[in-house]
């Protein structure tokens, strides 16, 4: 564990907590894409298949349980909770996430570290995580005024993977056999997808104006 990875995990945890705070306290999921939340639940479900077989550390297991539990409960809230679901913008959240899942699955069948079920699922979860934010970014561009919690959620979600990139650079130089091209490329693509959001988010913070993405 290094400071970059810890910062990344804590930022990722904060993004989940901000979203749960928004949904649980004000009972609203306005501006949040259910498609992205479903994709994240799938990412964690396919990434953490080894949660009960390979024990890494207490920290690792606890964090996996938190990410699995929070992502599925957010999907449940947005689909089932009578108050929260009313604030879900079904008409605007129309990104067909099937067209993200299928290419990632096909790519994982071709590009993986080993052609085993777990390794293919692991590669799939990395490719899917890289693009899972797209429905959310599309929804943000359609949603005129983005509320602060939603903006903070997306910002933290993008920042966590940026910290991971520093973690991969650090581990590459400090651990001899540490090479994971699939993780590195997926993580880089994922972070680049946030580039324009970061630009507008930073400007809205600098000029102290409401976050507004150009259509």
């Amino acid at each position: 564990m290094n400071i970059f990875r810890l910062a990344g995990d804590m930022t990722h945890l904060m993004s989940v907590l901000v979203l749960l705070l928004k949904i649980h306290t004000i009972k609203s999921c306005a501006g949040i894409s259910l498609k992205t939340q479903e994709l994240y639940a799938l990412v964690f479900a396919t990434r953490y298949l080894d949660i009960f077989t390979d024990f890494i550390s207490v920290y690792n297991t606890i964090m996996k349980l938190i990410f699995l539990g929070s992502s599925f409960s957010i999907v449940w809230y947005m689909r089932r909770h009578k108050l929260v679901r009313r604030s879900y913008d079904k008409e605007q959240d129309t990104f067909r996430h099937f067209f993200l899942v299928l290419p990632c699955l096909l790519l994982a069948l071709v590009m993986n570290e080993k052609f085993t079920f777990k390794e293919v699922m692991w590669a799939f979860s990395l490719y899917l995580e890289a693009v899972a934010i797209l429905p959310q970014l599309v929804l943000l561009q359609r949603t005129k005024n983005i509320d602060n919690l939603t903006g903070q959620y997306v910002f933290l979600l993008g920042a966590y993977r940026a910290f991971y990139i520093f973690n991969w650079i650090y581990r590459y130089f400090t651990e001899p056999h540490y090479v994971h091209w699939i993780t590195w490329i997926s993580g880089l693509v994922q972070t680049l997808l946030y580039a324009d959001f970061f630009y507008y988010y930073f400007n809205s913070w600098k000029n102290n104006v409401k976050l507004h993405l150009p259509a």
Binding site: R47, I56, F67, E113, Y178, T183
Partner: peptide, 10 residues
């Protein structure tokens, strides 16, 4: 730390 190929990251 874990052997190289074990996925020790979240």
């Amino acid at each position: 730390s874990a052997t190289p190929d074990v996925k020790d990251e979240l």
